[in-house]
């Protein structure tokens, strides 16, 4: 090969390494900045829910080799719990809705309506998250505060966690609902694609054996497309875990108290990083910034892990399924 080609190949090779290098750089730097906090906090980071930046007006004290403001302690339990609760609620809502939507689009509606409808559903994934936040504040929160949450409280009080006090519209329900809107298109696309890619023989065979469309859909979702079903849900969960602005705007931003009922406010990891970064920037000792870096690191690791798992499961499943025949 001549020099031109060699150079071209080398250049394209370098370019194809960029994503990996960027990812490793981000991980390495976040770990580097998080290190003082990891050493300083130890396991209290995961067991305490008190996030106290300390008294910055007093001279810093030396703890485990790091200068920190007196009284500083960084427990992220509230943020972790908030993230998990809101994402779990989002999956609980989005998963059945997505399944029903993909069933309707794939099985019951005419084929030519499919592409426009799926595009419309996918539009949910493209709406900027601040716009969701704005809609959540203006439309969803008043609706929850005045109608839905009082109704839930008076009619569903026997369910644990449903009997608390309704204070503001923001919090777990608002975050869960908005996150479910953001992740429903992901789950729907994965499911529709997987229903589409199921072999004709399976679909026609089932129909010719007398299966109704519901039975066909149920069979595909639990057998042929099972891995896509799980994989899509995990990909949606991965998105929900890392979502920032919308849950910052409708989450309620509570501090140093764990949510007591389903009407409580929350403060997810991503929201907390945005909310506290501003004040951490001026901090002299830097431990505050480092604690936020530790929070970022943890958030990044779990959302990468969930996404990776989702991709593996959804990807592998495309080839499987025919031998799982149980009908």
């Amino acid at each position: 090969m001549d020099t031109k080609n060699k150079f071209f190949n080398f250049f394209t090779f370098l370019m194809s390494l960029v994503p990996a290098l960027v990812l490793i750089t981000i991980l390495a730097f976040v770990l580097f900045y998080a290190w003082p906090s990891i050493v300083f906090n130890g396991t209290t980071f995961f067991t305490s829910y008190i996030w106290n930046v300390g008294i910055s007006s007093r001279p810093p004290v030396l703890v485990r080799g790091f200068l920190v403001p007196p009284n500083a302690s960084f427990g992220a339990l509230l943020f972790i719990e908030s993230t998990l609760i809101s994402s779990a609620l989002a999956i609980l809502i989005a998963f059945p809705v997505s399944f029903l939507v993909s069933l309707g689009v794939e099985m019951y509606l005419p084929a030519r309506a499919k592409r426009p409808l799926v595009s419309l559903i996918e539009l949910f994934a493209g709406i900027p998250s601040v716009v969701y936040g704005l809609w959540g504040i203006v439309v969803l929160e008043p609706l929850l505060l005045n109608t839905i949450e009082p109704w839930m409280r008076s009619n569903m009080y026997f369910i644990p966690g449903f009997s608390g006090e309704v204070l503001t519209g923001s919090g777990i329900i608002a975050s869960g609902l908005i996150l479910s809107l953001m992740i429903a298109p992901i789950i729907t696309s994965v499911m529709v694609n997987s229903f589409d890619s199921a072999p004709k023989e399976i679909k026609q065979g089932l129909v010719s054996l007398g299966a109704t469309k519901w039975e066909l859909g149920k069979y595909l979702a639990t057998n042929y497309s099972r891995s896509s079903t799980y994989g899509g849900a995990l990909l949606g969960l991965g998105r929900a875990l890392g979502e920032t602005m919308a849950v910052l705007m409708v989450g309620g931003g509570i501090v140093n108290v764990l949510p007591s009922s389903i009407y409580s406010g929350i403060n997810t990891m991503a929201a907390a990083i945005v909310a506290y970064l501003d004040s951490a920037i001026g901090q002299g000792t830097g431990i505050n910034l480092s604690a936020l870096a530790e929070l970022s690191l943890f958030l990044m690791v779990i959302s990468l892990a969930v996404n990776l798992l989702g991709r593996r499961i959804a990807g592998r499943g495309a080839l499987r399924g025919v031998e799982n025949d149980k009908l």
Binding site: P19, L23, I26, F29, G242, E243, I273, L277, S296
Partner: peptide, 25 residues
């Protein structure tokens, strides 16, 4: 496959993590 995997998981880095990285670095 590994290169594609890195590309895929880069999409799932939470945006605020990129923001914090951008600020710090």
């Amino acid at each position: 496959g590994a290169m594609r995997l890195f590309t895929d998981i880069l999409t799932s880095v939470p945006s605020i993590v990129i923001g914090l990285f951008g600020y710090l670095v």
